[in-house]
Design a protein around this nucleic acid. Structure first.
Lengths: 248, 248
DNA sequence: CTAAACTGTTTATGCTCTAAACAAGCGCGT
DNA sequence: ACGCGCTTGTTTAGAGCATAAACAGTTTAG
C-alpha cells in the first residue's frame, strides 16, 4: 500500500510538473533576480549530458556523473532541471538542433522526404543513445522535434494527400529511420559475429524447424551488403506512397 | 578506476554467460539429481513475471517482486535464472508462444504477410511491455522468435525476391508493427487529450514557425479515426513490395 | 552412512533518483 | 545603507534496484 501510494504520488507530481518541463523545452523561463548568479543553465547541463552519452552511452548518464562534470553535487542539478526525465528530454532537443533545410534536396516530395530521412538517420548515427532516450515515455515535444515534423509534413503538402494521410506517411518514414536505428543499436562488429556463430549453430541443429530461415541464411540473407537498409526500406515505402497518390 | 573496472568485469561475465542464456531459452537444461527438489522452474518464473508485467507494467517487475509472487527471497531466483536480462528474454519467449499458422490466411504472399503483421500486433497489444523488453539490447533469439521470423520469410518465398530482399522486407514489416506499438505505448486516453491541449496551445503561439504542422492539425490530422494505422502503413509497404516484385 | 551437490536465506555492497534540511550569496525595497 | 528573503549549492538520508558471498538445510549417489 505504501508501494501503491508512492507511484501514484509520483505520477501526480509529474503531471503537475509537465508545464515546467514544457517551459524548459521552449525556453520560456524567466530568470530570477534575487539570489546568487547561477553557475549553470539547463542547456549547459543537457549539453554535458549529451557529450557524456555520446562518449560512454546513455546508461552512464546519471545525475551524479553529469554533476561531476561541472564539479558540483548531484543535487545542484535539480535547481535547473525538475528531474532526470526532463533532462533526457532536453538532451533530445539539444541533439535535434535546427530542422533540416530540404529545399536544397530538390523540388519533388519524394526527394525531400528521402533527404529528411537521411538527415534524421545521420542524427541517430551520431547519437546512438537517441533511440533509448525517445523510447522512454515521452509526453511532450520540444520545438526542434516539432520543426522536424513540420519539415516532413511540408514536403508532403504538394502530394494532394489528405491531412490524415500525410500524417500517417510521416509516421511511416520516421518509423523506418527509427527501426533502422533499433536494428543497428545492438550490433557492433564482434558481437554480431558471435551472434551469427551461435545462431547458425542452433539452426544447424534445428534446421527442420525453421526451413525458410535456414534457406534464407544459406542464400546469404544476413551477410550480404548489397542492399543499403535505409534506402531499401525507404524506397519500398515511397513506392507505396506513390501508388496511393496515383490512385487518388 | 574502480568505476571503470566494474563494468568491464560485468561485460565479460555476461559474455561468458551467454551460452547459459541460450541453454535456458532453448530448454537444453539438464536437471540435477543430487539436491532438494527445486520448487520453481525458469518457465514458471517467467510466467509469473509476465502476469505481473501485464498487470502493472514492466517497471514493477523486479527480482524482489517476482520472488514475492512465489513467497521466496529474491536471491532464490538466481538459482534458476542467471540475471534479470535473461529473465526478460524468457518473458519475451513466453509471450511469443507458438508461431502463427498463416496457411489459413490465404495463399498469396500479401495476405499471409498481412496476417502475420496482425498477429504480431495482437501480441503487442496484449503485452504492451513487450516493446520495452525487446528494446533492451537483445543479443540472442529464442526458438519462438525465430519461428515467427521463419513464418514471415516462408510467406515471402513465392515472391521470387532474393534472400536479401526477403530479409529486408521482413524487417520492414516487423518494424512497422513495432513502430505502431511504440506510438501507442505512451498514449492513454486522458494523457493524449492533455498532450493535445498543450500542443495546440503552443502551436497557437508559434503557428508561424510550424506552418505545415499547424495546417495538418487544422485539417484534423491528429484527431481523425478514419485510417487504421496498422493497415495504412502495411498497405503502403506491401504496395511498395509489389512494385519491386513486378519490376523483377 | 558419509560426502557431494543442490536449494534457499541472510547479509552486504554499490548503484540509482530525489526529498528535506541547511549554509551561504546577492539584490530589492525601505 | 541595511536587512529580509529569494536563490544557490551542499549534506544527509531514504527507498529501491541488481546481485555477490557466505551460510544452513535437504536430498541422493556411492
Amino acid at each position: 500500500m505504501a508501494r501503491a501510494a508512492k507511484p501514484r504520488e509520483n505520477k501526480d507530481k509529474k503531471a503537475r510538473d509537465l508545464p515546467t518541463g514544457i517551459a524548459l523545452l521552449w525556453g520560456e523561463q524567466d530568470q530570477p533576480a534575487r539570489g546568487p548568479k547561477p553557475r549553470l543553465t539547463p542547456q549547459r547541463i543537457a549539453q554535458a549530458a549529451v557529450t557524456l552519452a555520446d562518449a560512454e552511452g546513455l546508461e552512464t548518464v546519471s545525475m551524479n556523473r553529469v554533476a561531476a562534470e561541472f564539479g558540483v553535487s548531484a543535487m545542484a542539478l535539480y535547481r535547473y532541471v525538475p528531474g532526470k526525465t526532463e533532462l533526457v528530454e532536453l538532451m533530445v532537443e539539444a541533439v535535434l538542433a535546427e530542422p533540416p533545410d530540404l529545399s536544397a534536396a530538390g523540388s519533388g516530395w519524394r526527394a525531400r522526404l528521402s533527404a529528411w530521412a537521411h538527415r534524421q538517420w545521420a542524427v541517430y548515427r551520431a547519437h546512438p543513445w537517441l533511440l533509448a532516450a525517445t523510447a522512454m515515455r515521452r509526453q511532450i515535444m520540444g520545438p526542434h522535434q516539432l520543426a522536424w515534423m513540420d519539415a516532413a509534413l511540408a514536403a508532403l503538402e504538394p502530394t494532394g494527400l489528405t491531412a490524415d494521410q500525410r500524417h500517417q506517411v510521416f509516421l511511416l518514414i520516421a518509423g523506418q529511420v527509427r527501426n533502422l536505428a533499433q536494428q543497428r543499436a545492438d550490433f557492433n562488429e564482434d558481437h554480431n559475429r558471435e551472434w551469427g556463430r551461435l545462431t547458425s549453430e542452433l539452426l544447424n541443429r534445428h534446421s527442420d524447424r525453421f526451413p525458410a530461415l535456414t534457406k534464407a541464411i544459406a542464400d546469404g540473407a544476413f551477410t550480404s551488403t548489397e542492399l543499403d537498409p535505409l534506402d531499401f526500406g525507404l524506397d519500398r515505402i515511397l513506392d507505396g506512397v506513390q501508388v496511393l497518390i496515383d490512385r487518388a
